[in-house]
Design a protein around this nucleic acid. Structure first.
Length: 520
RNA sequence: GGCGCCGUGCCCAAGUGGUUUAAGGGAGCGGAUUGCAAAUCCGUUAUUCAUCGGUUCGAAUCCGAUCGGCGCCUCCA
């Protein structure tokens, strides 16, 4: 079974065959860094981070590029508003973006080129288009001549004359309304770069054509981005690159679904949105996730929920679907995730080792899928293999992370059941061979979840550093007091101790070999 | 208006021609376990996949119509 990818260009799933065997080039359209990111900006990075992990797991050498747009009208606007330079705005917001990516576990990006650092390449690219007569200069501006591109509109299935293009002052300079800017002349006081057409800055689309060529070549394997970028951005990228090079820009075009913000009280959903006659604030906020919709800062959301929860929440659903973001939906994801965290504690009780060390270091986790030893097919391991095969089949099918997650739950259930039945928590009753089987099953769980970028390292406890130890001592004291009460059959007192701890956020669990506790 | 996407149990969600008389998670209910819980396990909640027609030996999966939702056509990921 090989990997298949849904290609927007052909509207069908196609077998994945990279242009150069063994190597994969991916370009993902990144952010315009003028304001702090919101959760919607993380959908693409999270899914492509997962895609890269999966391709690496399958033995490919992946080069993943995410661009940073650091010159643009909105950036200029921010710099004026805040009284700092455009470059300062960009640097600040790029750092914010990168910090958010890391918090979400996105650490697979190979390079993040900035538009302003690629001016030479951009200008050369525009010159090439002018030479080939696909672009023209018009009093300091340069436009792409859409009429010259016979194939224009093939990605989004539109014809050139349907497109409005930029209006305003630029319209008068254009040969036809659908032409779009490659280079914009600078007005007084705007950041500008020297060019053959005078002082100015690049248009929105050209940086992606120029930087992808520099870093990935004239033709590369996968180009990705949000569904909203399909038109006009990606269409224009195709026009620029393919007219310039005379060959396909990217073999596979992938578009992720967009995030919507949902109203409180509803878990989410693809379809309905309740519409009241009154135009309430809540209603205005329920809809497309965008900066204007008051989606809430990602920074706050990350602080509140943690990156792993949000990542899991996004990966639970197929990347091409619309996801509705709400607190209720996130709470549900948290409950589901907890099943794994609870199991990791169980693993630790059984083996006296941290789950996070179960299969060596992280690099070993992302090994080639062929490296499996399936010679041992005894009871548990046969089941484990079944779930692993199902998991990989789901991922092979257009990176169906939602389906893959369900196999993770199946695997988890299998491991819990085995631990129950073979009394693995009671050292006197268990057998070494059962323990070995169990550990090998857990290694598979760790390996498969690593593909999704989950459970790679312990989630930072809400209690900071040193106070963690103090908290444990404190809780242990209560546990001892409660144990005494239980000895004396004073259940009223023992229950009160437990209830009050629960109210304080500490859950107790009585086990054969003693009482344990956890937060939450 | 043009171009697309979607409608699966109480909620979320995979599946897109037969191995599915439909995964997985949440919620509910019943049971095992527990002093009672928590956690875990077992059972249970869609003869049905918006509706109506059609194609087919066979459809949630293909085609058409209808209803409902969503996105893009404005430099929003």
């Amino acid at each position: 079974m090989s990997i298949r990818i849904y290609n927007t260009l052909t509207k069908s799933k196609e077998p994945f065959e990279p242009i150069t065997p063994g190597k994969v080039g991916i370009y993902l359209c990144g952010p315009t860094v003028y304001k702090e990111a919101h959760i919607g900006h993380m959908v693409g990075p999270v899914i492509f981070d997962t895609i890269k992990r999966y391709l690496t797991y399958n033995g490919f050498d992946v080069n993943w590029v995410v661009n940073i747009t650091d010159v643009d009208d909105k950036l200029i606007g921010q710099s004026r508003e805040r009284g700092i330079t455009m470059s300062q705005v960009a640097t600040e917001m790029t750092m914010d973006y990168c910090a958010n990516l890391l918090a979400m576990g996105v650490d697979q990006i190979t390079s993040m080129p900035r538009a302003t650092e690629n001016m030479v390449e951009i200008i050369q690219f525009i010159e090439g288009l002018i030479e080939k007569d696909y672009a023209y200069e018009s009093s300091g501006d340069v436009f792409f001549d859409v009429q010259k591109d016979r194939q224009y509109g093939k990605l989004s299935n539109r014809s050139a004359d349907e497109q409005q293009g930029e209006g305003g002052g630029a319209a008068a300079k254009k040969r036809s309304a659908s032409d779009f800017a490659l280079w914009k002349s600078a007005k007084a006081g705007e950041p500008a770069w020297d060019s053959p057409w005078g002082q100015g800055r690049p248009g929105w689309h050209i940086e992606c054509s120029a930087m992808s060529r520099r870093l990935l070549g004239e033709s590369f394997d996968i180009h990705g981005g949000g569904l909203d970028l399909m038109f006009p951005h990606h269409e224009n990228e195709i026009a620029q690159s393919e007219c310039c090079h005379g060959k396909p820009m990217a073999k596979y075009w992938m578009h992720n679904g967009l995030l919507r913000s949902g109203e409180a009280g509803k878990v989410g959903g693809r379809g309905e949105r309740e519409s009241d006659a009154t135009d309430s604030v809540e209603q205005a906020a329920s809809g497309k996730m965008s900066r204007s919709a008051g989606a809430g800062g990602l920074r706050d959301q990350l602080a509140k929920h943690g990156g792993e929860k949000i990542r899991f929440f996004l990966l639970k659903t197929h990347y091409r679907s619309t996801v509705v973001y709400s607190e209720a939906a996130l709470d549900e994801a948290a409950i589901a995730l907890d099943k794994f965290y609870v199991f990791f504690d169980r693993y630790e009780r059984i083996t006296s080792r941290s789950y996070y060390l179960a299969a060596g270091d992280d690099r070993k986790l992302v090994r080639r899928r062929e490296e499996h030893d399936d010679s041992d097919t005894s009871g548990l391991l046969a089941e484990v293999k079944g779930y692993r095969d199902a998991y990989l089949a789901k991922m092979d099918d257009d990176f169906n992370s939602g389906g893959a997650v369900s196999e993770l739950f199946n695997l988890l259930g299998s491991l819990n059941k085995f631990a129950d039945q073979q009394n693995l928590e009671e050292s006197a009753k268990r057998s070494q061979s059962d323990l070995d089987q169990f550990c090998r099953g857990v290694e598979v769980l760790r390996e498969l979840s690593a593909i999704l970028g989950l459970f790679l390292k312990p989630v930072a406890s809400s209690a900071a550093g040193g106070s963690e130890e103090t908290l444990d001592k404190l809780v242990q004291t209560f546990i001892r007091m409660r144990a005494d009460a239980r000895q004396n059959k004073d259940f009223a007192l023992s229950d009160r101790i437990r209830d009050e701890l629960t109210a304080a956020g500490v859950t107790l669990e009585d086990r054969k070999e003693g009482t344990t506790w956890r937060l939450g």
